[in-house]
Design a protein around this nucleic acid. Structure first.
Length: 237
DNA sequence: GGCCAGGACACCA
DNA sequence: TGGTGTCATGGC
């Protein structure tokens, strides 16, 4: 994972180095990467597993999601046909540790049904869509909202789209660049208009925001020990 | 015992 | 259109 060198990449990417907001977004990335290093989120060798994880992680702790995925793997059910073949009760039981198991069982089923009906279970075919069409296609599936759709596009399809989540809002609020009322697409646009459209960069940046949000912004109301403290506009916000 | 986690949907005014 | 309730386990 290489960090963007804004001094040299501007000419290549069109990122406006004179834009203080864009500079700040890039600066935050550098500071987070320096502090935490690469996060190794979802190496997409198993895109279907990534999609399952993206759905199961909705409002759930990742450790619990891992248990649910392990159950599915043990059942040899980490593929669309197997999930479709499972009785809903059995599917819900397997994903029980991730919480909301009945609701999430319906969501998983909705996705594999959609994938089967329209793409013959081929993620390659689904991912062949351009990003906007893919996003619209995913949003049409029950249980897939903006964040889950973007997570699938970024981490499974490996297309450059920025994922906004609760941690992103929390960290950006600390920096004075957002508040709790900032809508998803405005915050997403803040990143995509400030950074090179690079899939591995967006992957790493989102993972770093989650790491930082967990480590510091939540636990330390006064930004104690925060690597962003010097540029933090509103400690304690 | 309460809070929160890598959200989304249904319902209502 | 915006606000609220619901879905629910597991770790701290």
């Amino acid at each position: 994972m290489s960090m963007p060198n804004t001094r040299h990449r501007d000419a290549q990417t069109g990122v406006d180095e004179d834009n203080p907001l864009a500079r700040r977004i890039v600066e935050v990335y550098h500071l987070l990467f320096e502090r935490y290093g690469p996060q190794h989120w979802w190496p997409a060798d198993m895109p279907f597993e990534v999609i399952v994880g993206a759905i199961l992680t909705q409002s759930a702790a990742w450790a619990n999601v891992e248990k649910a995925i392990a159950n599915l793997r043990r059942e040899d059910a980490l593929n669309p046909a197997a999930i479709r073949a499972l009785p809903m009760e059995r599917l819900a039981h397997l994903i029980y540790p991730s919480g909301y198991y009945n609701a999430k069982a319906r969501k998983l089923r909705a996705f594999v049904d959609h994938l089967g009906e329209r793409y013959a279970d081929s993620l390659d075919r689904l991912f062949a869509l351009d990003t906007a069409s893919l996003r619209a296609e995913l949003l049409a599936v029950h249980g897939i909202g903006p964040e889950t759709a973007d997570s699938i596009i970024l981490y499974a399809a490996r297309k450059p789209i920025f994922v906004v989540d609760a941690y992103t809002v929390r960290v950006m609020a600390r920096l004075g660049l957002a508040d709790n009322g900032t809508d998803y697409h405005s915050l997403q646009a803040l990143f995509t208009s400030s950074l090179p459209h690079d899939e591995s960069l967006f992957n790493e940046y989102h993972a770093l925001l989650v790491r930082h949000g967990k480590d510091v912004c939540k636990k330390s109301p006064q930004c104690d020990g925060c690597c962003l403290a010097l540029i933090c506009a509103s400690p304690g916000a």
